[in-house]
Design a binder for these strands. Structure first.
Lengths: 153, 153
DNA sequence: GTGTCTGCAAACTTTTTGCAAGTCC
DNA sequence: GGACTTGCAAAAAGTTTGCAGACAC
């Protein structure tokens, strides 16, 4: 895992930003929990385990930096919380989107990858002359667990 | 337009809620501006034109009611504002989703309708055993106007 | 050494809540 | 009349900002 951190450190430096313990600690939290869709408060709590003196304001400021550098993505799962997750696309190259399946009963969130929207994007491009560069898809429904529970009732 | 209001009044009554001037006024604001993606503050300002005594808290509470009754939808266009719009699907029948094209340069929002995600939903259903009931799609890119401006530079 | 960053506290913004008075049915 | 609503003000929740001291390089 040192590679990722080195990349991050380079990224900071090349943008005139400094490498600080707090920033590294927050990155580590995000890296340890990919696809966990953490809220700011959760990130704050996790970081405090290793870096108890950190302030909430620093977490907010660092999240902003990470977001600007496209290291993490902002996420809205309609549960009233703003969430963040590692930007996986930036590691795997462009075009590898991942989307979210949100269970309306238990609130769990599954992730899936799919590039099937390309045909849609082409059609949009032709019919509306809108150049699509990215997309976000959220699917709502009922997860395997919740479906089983309903069947057994 | 009296029909819609009658439907709404019925909907309120059948849920044990009361028909008040404030609720009707807010519904009218939403109906007059379909696809305008209003913020709470905007709704508040518009309603005050006709109903100057209304309080902001009432707007929040009414929006909650309208949202619970599926008359309006919450919307997040990643610009830092929570927005609402009339739920058109509830009028046209299920399955008629509409999605959003967000211009990364000027921030304008276009709407389009498409049911093309059905094949994707089927595949998700089979592979992950997740029953999809609804979806939301946001496409990011550059609108016609902004593309023209770039070309002419 | 200098410019950036941090922690703290205060300020701000957005949304929710308690309550007495008012409205709907 | 009784239950539901409203407006107001206060409170709560979430986020940003100013600043003095600390840190990175």
């Amino acid at each position: 895992m040192p590679d990722k951190q080195d990349v991050f450190k380079q990224l900071l430096k090349s943008n005139g930003l400094k490498v600080t313990n707090q920033r590294i600690a927050i990155l580590e939290v995000m890296e340890k929990r990919p696809e966990e869709h953490l809220t700011v408060e959760e990130i704050y709590d996790y970081v405090k385990e290793k870096y108890s003196d950190i302030g909430l304001a620093t977490v907010y400021r660092t999240i902003q930096v990470l977001s600007d550098l496209n290291v993490i993505d902002k996420l809205n799962l309609d549960d009233g919380y703003v969430r963040y997750e590692l930007n996986i696309a930036s590691e795997e190259g462009e075009g590898h989107h991942h989307h979210h399946l949100i269970c309306l009963k238990c609130g769990s969130v599954l992730t899936f990858r799919d590039d099937l929207l390309e045909t849609l994007e082409e059609r949009i491009q032709k019919s509306l002359n809108f150049q699509v560069t990215d997309h976000e898809v959220k699917l709502y429904g009922y997860c395997e667990e919740c479906r089983k529970m309903v069947e057994n009732e």
